[in-house]
Nucleic acid binder design. Structure first.
Lengths: 223, 223
DNA sequence: TCGAACCTTGACGGATCCTTGACGCCGCTT
DNA sequence: AAGCGGCGTCAAGGATCCGTCAAGGTTCGA
């Protein structure tokens, strides 16, 4: 179920939004001022936030900035002001969209669908993976129980693969993440380093079970 | 360098946007109609698209849908219409933002920064479908629970079909999306690859239930 | 200065995939 | 009944991609 946090100080607006969203099967949480909104977002991380700018106490822009310190949750700003500078300030503070009152409920819902459509970016940093007889710890850059020495480039490649377990990673994506823009064509790098990783980690490097290759597509880490 | 593709049929609007964006160090590509925009986006994938809705020929909404078949690039729609239904249609077609003319250049730039801020998702669009005993995951290019290996061309065809569930996709459209312009006559490709897909995914390849042929028309994915 | 570890680059055989043509089946038309 | 076009199937070739190896080139510390 998709959780939406609505922040507004006007009870009737809050209620109207809540009814409309719940009718569309969203789970709704509400807050009437900025600090309570931050508490609520921290306690139960929502999938999206609808935020009125004209809040008592903490300014709406400050709420966005505070949220953005630790969360990438999509934020749609509601505001009575239609001035361009207000929009610029809110968007640059970290808002994803800006809707001017009065607005159409259908438009707001469409914009909500639009920001929710983007891939949820709650991917954790680090993690660990089991390959053959080895357990690799990405955060600590260590391999247990038998210590195996990996080069920096090998670590970067392994990190990208392990952070998308079971999913295919395009050769282009891998080259982009590890070597940066401008190296998308050097697929031979990947061949060399994947061979090295398999030789060091796989039980049978000739028949890998975890660091798989998808011909023509890319590579995949299979847990 | 951040690449932005601007699509507008009015030369002066095109020029004004280009000058403003280039002054902010963006790399700008332009197109004056929908089909050229799609060609340009396929040849040099941009990091964001600014799209005028009132295009000659191909409708702006259709441009978004065609883009969304294979790309998740952020799209900001420009439009002279401020009606709520127009916004809803464009946003649900896959647009990320909707700006009504006349607009402030600073606001547009702020919205551009907002859509570019989200993690670079040059990954293909996701989605999943059930075919026979298999569940195909387009985002991860995986088939569960029994792993099935599909070739790159098979994935591209399946992506186009699954993105239009229940709807007919003409052979021409399929050839255009998968092989690009200039291959519209090679319908035998489709026969070969559809046969391969059915052999790998359908329970009874001789009597397909999900990857259907509409004689004389094209193909259809039936969920 | 030297050496070691690492990164780049090229070449080659083998595996995989794409393309192409041929053949037979089926439904429709003549 | 014969002809025709669209479709499914199959196999062979050519093109492309991948695994492997080895030889420089670079960086960094001893």
């Amino acid at each position: 179920m998709t959780r939406v946090l609505i922040v507004d100080d006007e009870p009737q607006m809050l209620r109207a939004l809540q009814i409309n969203l719940e009718a569309r099967q969203y789970t709704v949480a509400t807050a009437q001022d900025g600090s309570r909104a931050l508490d609520e977002a921290a306690a139960f991380p929502p999938d999206a936030v609808i935020l009125d700018l004209g809040l008592p106490g903490l300014d709406g822009t400050e709420v966005i900035r505070a949220l953005r310190v630790w969360s990438a949750v999509p934020v749609i700003v509601l505001s009575g002001r239609s001035g361009a500078t207000d929009k610029v300030i809110a968007l640059d503070a970290g808002a994803d969209d800006y809707v001017t009152k009065p607005f159409s409920m259908n438009e707001l819902l469409a914009r909500l669908r639009a920001v929710l459509r983007r891939p949820a970016s709650d991917e954790p940093i680090g993690g660990s993976a089991v390959i053959g007889d080895h357990t690799v710890d990405l955060a600590g850059c260590t391999v247990r129980p038998v210590p195996v020495r990996l080069t920096p480039t090998e670590w970067r490649i392994l990190t990208v693969l392990v952070q998308h377990p079971g999913r295919l990673v395009t050769g282009r994506q891998l080259l982009l993440d590890v070597w940066g823009p401008g190296h998308e064509r050097k697929t031979n790098y990947l061949r060399v380093y994947l061979a090295g990783l398999r030789r060091k980690l796989e039980r049978d490097p000739a028949h890998p079970r975890h660091l798989l290759t998808e011909p023509g597509m890319g590579y995949r880490f299979e847990p």
